[in-house]
Structure formats: C-alpha cells, structure tokens
Amino acid sequence: LKKVVALYDYMPMNANDLQLRKGDEYFILEESNLPWWRARDKNGQEGYIPSNYVTEAE
C-alpha cells in the first residue's frame, strides 16, 4: 500500500470521510476517485480524504 503524510488537518464533511492530522501517516487503499482517495489511518479507521491534503511518505 502507498503511504502518505498529511500536509494539513482535515475535518470530515460527512460520515464517509476520514479525519486527517498534519504529520500523521495514512495508507492509501484506492486512488481511482480523484480528488478523493480512500485511506486508512494508524487506528484502522477508513474513509475518504482530499488527495491534495497529503504527500507521498519518504
């Protein structure tokens, strides 16, 4: 899975979204639905995130 790091905080707009915290790492599960990607956080929560809020992890 592709790993990304959040560049900004993101508060979910609806139940399908995943909250982002700046500096945290996330795994990308699906990239087909631009600009929204399906992601999983370190706690196993899954949801959609804005792809322009993250960058690929080193």
Rank of each mutant, 00 (worst) to 15 (best):
43 N>Q: 10
13 M>R: 15
53 Y>H: 07
43 N>H: 13
26 Y>F: 05
23 G>Y: 05
54 V>P: 01
54 V>N: 01
43 N>W: 13
24 D>I: 06
27 F>G: 03
30 E>W: 11
28 I>Q: 02
28 I>Y: 01
48 Y>R: 09
40 R>E: 05
41 D>E: 03
28 I>A: 03
50 P>K: 06
22 K>Q: 10
15 A>N: 11
39 A>L: 06
20 L>H: 01
50 P>M: 08
7 L>W: 04
8 Y>A: 10
19 Q>K: 08
48 Y>M: 13
6 A>E: 01
36 W>Y: 15
56 E>L: 13
33 N>F: 08
23 G>H: 04
46 E>T: 07
41 D>L: 02
19 Q>V: 08
58 E>V: 14
34 L>P: 15
10 Y>W: 14
48 Y>E: 04
11 M>S: 11
48 Y>L: 11
56 E>N: 11
24 D>A: 09
15 A>F: 10
27 F>E: 10
28 I>D: 00
13 M>L: 13
45 Q>S: 10
22 K>A: 13
47 G>N: 00
27 F>A: 05
6 A>Y: 01
1 L>F: 11
20 L>P: 00
53 Y>M: 11
53 Y>T: 03
47 G>I: 01
49 I>G: 01
10 Y>I: 03
11 M>K: 12
35 P>K: 15
25 E>M: 14
36 W>V: 13
28 I>S: 01
19 Q>W: 08
25 E>I: 15
50 P>Q: 07
21 R>N: 10
38 R>N: 06
45 Q>E: 11
1 L>K: 06
8 Y>H: 11
58 E>A: 14
55 T>D: 05
54 V>T: 05
22 K>N: 04
4 V>E: 01
22 K>S: 07
46 E>W: 07
39 A>R: 00
25 E>W: 14
25 E>D: 06
8 Y>N: 07
50 P>Y: 10
3 K>F: 05
36 W>Q: 13
42 K>H: 08
30 E>M: 07
15 A>I: 11
16 N>V: 09
30 E>R: 05
9 D>Q: 03
22 K>W: 05
27 F>Y: 14
24 D>N: 07
33 N>C: 15
29 L>D: 02
27 F>P: 00
22 K>Y: 05
12 P>N: 04
51 S>C: 13
18 L>I: 05
54 V>R: 00
23 G>E: 03
35 P>Y: 15
48 Y>F: 12
57 A>I: 15
50 P>R: 07
4 V>P: 00
51 S>G: 07
27 F>H: 07
29 L>V: 10
45 Q>K: 14
40 R>G: 03
32 S>C: 13
43 N>K: 10
38 R>F: 15
11 M>P: 06
32 S>L: 10
36 W>D: 07
46 E>A: 05
44 G>P: 00
16 N>T: 14
50 P>E: 03
3 K>V: 12
30 E>V: 07
48 Y>I: 07
17 D>Y: 15
38 R>Y: 15
1 L>P: 09
17 D>L: 11
56 E>C: 11
38 R>P: 10
6 A>P: 01
35 P>T: 15
16 N>G: 15
11 M>Q: 12
40 R>M: 14
16 N>E: 13
19 Q>A: 13
35 P>V: 15
53 Y>P: 00
56 E>W: 14
45 Q>C: 13
34 L>Q: 12
7 L>H: 04
12 P>K: 06
55 T>P: 01
55 T>R: 13
39 A>I: 06
35 P>W: 15
18 L>Y: 01
24 D>T: 06
52 N>M: 11
11 M>N: 11
56 E>V: 13
21 R>W: 12
49 I>W: 01
39 A>E: 01
4 V>L: 04
58 E>R: 12
17 D>T: 07
57 A>L: 14
14 N>W: 10
24 D>K: 06
58 E>W: 11
2 K>Y: 09
2 K>E: 02
17 D>W: 15
20 L>Y: 00
8 Y>Q: 12
51 S>V: 09
15 A>G: 10
43 N>L: 10
37 W>A: 05
57 A>T: 12
45 Q>M: 13
39 A>V: 11
23 G>L: 03
20 L>D: 00
46 E>K: 03
15 A>P: 14
56 E>I: 13
27 F>D: 07
31 E>T: 11
22 K>H: 06
41 D>N: 11
54 V>H: 01
3 K>D: 01
27 F>S: 06
27 F>V: 11
22 K>R: 10
13 M>S: 12
4 V>H: 03
30 E>H: 08
9 D>Y: 03
40 R>D: 02
42 K>R: 11
35 P>M: 15
2 K>I: 07
36 W>G: 07
8 Y>P: 00
57 A>V: 15
7 L>V: 07
57 A>Y: 12
18 L>D: 00
36 W>M: 15
35 P>S: 15
26 Y>V: 05
56 E>D: 14
12 P>T: 05
37 W>Y: 10
8 Y>D: 07
1 L>V: 09
58 E>Q: 13
14 N>C: 15
14 N>F: 11
40 R>P: 01
36 W>C: 14
14 N>K: 12
50 P>W: 07
56 E>F: 14
28 I>F: 02
31 E>S: 12
46 E>D: 05
38 R>W: 15
52 N>E: 12
2 K>F: 08
24 D>Y: 08
14 N>T: 10
29 L>A: 03
44 G>E: 04
46 E>Y: 05
8 Y>E: 08
40 R>F: 06
58 E>N: 13
49 I>R: 00
13 M>N: 11
6 A>W: 01
39 A>F: 02
37 W>V: 14
19 Q>I: 08
10 Y>E: 00
47 G>Y: 02
56 E>M: 13
17 D>K: 08
23 G>C: 07
54 V>A: 02
8 Y>C: 15
4 V>F: 07
51 S>F: 14
52 N>P: 05
24 D>H: 14
54 V>M: 04
21 R>A: 08
45 Q>P: 02
14 N>P: 02
39 A>N: 00
6 A>C: 04
26 Y>L: 07
51 S>P: 06
21 R>P: 00
28 I>T: 02
36 W>F: 15
10 Y>G: 01
15 A>K: 13
5 V>P: 00
28 I>W: 02
15 A>M: 10
46 E>M: 06
31 E>Q: 12
49 I>C: 02
6 A>S: 05
8 Y>T: 06
